[in-house]
Write a protein that binds this DNA or RNA. Structure first.
Lengths: 229, 229
DNA sequence: TCAAAAGTGTTTAGTTTACACCCATGC
DNA sequence: GCATGGGTGTAAACTAAACACTTTTGA
């Protein structure tokens, strides 16, 4: 039952955990160094206020765009934190989103408008401000869980990718090695990839490029198919 | 980056999707009939305001307790909705939680403090107020997804239960029949149930009662075990 | 011709699926 | 003794795991 006649004044913000995969299949996250108290000098997740009539997800997309110049990428709500004293200045409720982008194709123009902005590998994060370390942990956990039964891994890769790249991605996120033979057999048997061109100009046997066939996948889903790796 | 110096005044509420399993393995949800505009007469999820210094989950637990008299049960954040016009009276941001309780053991004392309160089977819901139909859909989807890879189903059953009850629960939530033989083999092989007494006084072969062995489960989890059904 | 990564064959162990059957009880 | 769930045996089909091997390229 919602009765907003007696309204609570609190700050509503949105933070973004922006995951990016670099050229060498390292999973990174975008952090911003705080320029003032509290936590001056510490690194924090990019975030900002939700405007008066702004949908939450729009706010998240806006922040993502402001910090990376990127739009039209995977973005999804992660969790809402509202512990009363998480910000020393007063009560702040923050809706956290996470986004997945590819660092090679996207021009990762981290507009350095006099703020320090940095991509940090997720296994080597600095000290984080507020409760952002907890949030990070949650985000990674969510990514780990979700990547296994939803085809979101493709969001981190370039449009066209090799099976080895895909496997590296899964190995990075899941934190364990996978058997090449079995990985290939399994993913190809799902029949949700379409073949593209051949990646030439490498000092070894050229690889077949694939892209995720969204339409085909949706079709299979309708018929009860479940992605699972 | 959170800087609450310029603060947005908006209403922050918490709603609860309270799932309950009745004696005949029907999955139900607790709804409240609205006594005033907007949506007067329509059914809605129980909810209420977050107090000034109240943690979000405490608010959810409080509402759950107020409506059902129940505490110390499974409760988890589901999603935060904040579409600008979802409440005709102004902007309301709602953090939705879902809870799992057992309707047989818990005294489901739906304190009828002059409000109409009702348990509705999830496959036969009335017209819902606000965007609560969307929220319900999300909650069911989450329950469906989560029940397969987290041992949360036990939260809906009494402390002691038979394997048939457990299977019925899974069949209800997943919406499909499961093979008795295979279900039993699989769940017992996980070795996370401990045997209890025998359920006597029934007009058929008495059943072995089991209870979920939380400690053992946590132990297995530490060693990399993943619940999966 | 060699290094490096792409890509394939095949065996074995384990799991899932499917079906059929027996068991213990109250009425 | 029969209806009603509780509970088990087992064969066949399918997957997963493991390992070793061949292929194609640039330098």
């Amino acid at each position: 039952m919602t009765n907003p006649t007696e309204s609570l004044s609190s700050s509503l913000t949105v933070d973004c955990v922006i995951f990016g995969l670099d050229a060498s299949s390292r999973l990174k996250v975008l952090l911003i160094q705080r320029g003032h108290e509290p936590f001056e000098g510490a690194w924090a997740l990019p975030g900002g206020f939700v405007a008066k009539y702004e949908p939450l997800e729009d706010a998240a997309s806006r922040i993502l765009r402001e910090e990376t110049g990127v739009s039209d990428v995977f973005i999804e709500q992660l969790y809402t934190v509202g512990t009363p004293n998480r910000d020393p200045r007063g009560r702040v409720v923050t809706v956290v989103y996470y986004a997945l982008i590819n660092l090679v194709e996207q021009s990762t123009a981290t507009k350095s408008d006099n703020k320090a902005v940095e991509w940090y590998p997720i296994d080597n994060l600095p000290q984080l401000a507020f409760d952002h370390a907890d949030i990070m942990k949650m985000a990674i956990q969510r990514l780990r869980g979700k990547v296994r039964y939803q085809p979101i891994g493709f969001e981190l890769l370039p449009e066209s990718f090799t099976l080895t790249q895909l496997q590296n991605l899964y190995e990075t996120i899941l934190g364990k090695e996978l058997n090449k033979r079995n990985f290939r057999t399994k993913i190809l048997k799902m029949d949700i990839l379409k073949e593209g061109s051949i990646l030439r100009g490498v000092a070894h046997r050229p690889a077949q490029l694939y892209r995720f066939d969204e339409a085909k996948y949706q079709d299979y889903v309708k018929r009860g198919f479940n992605f699972e790796l």
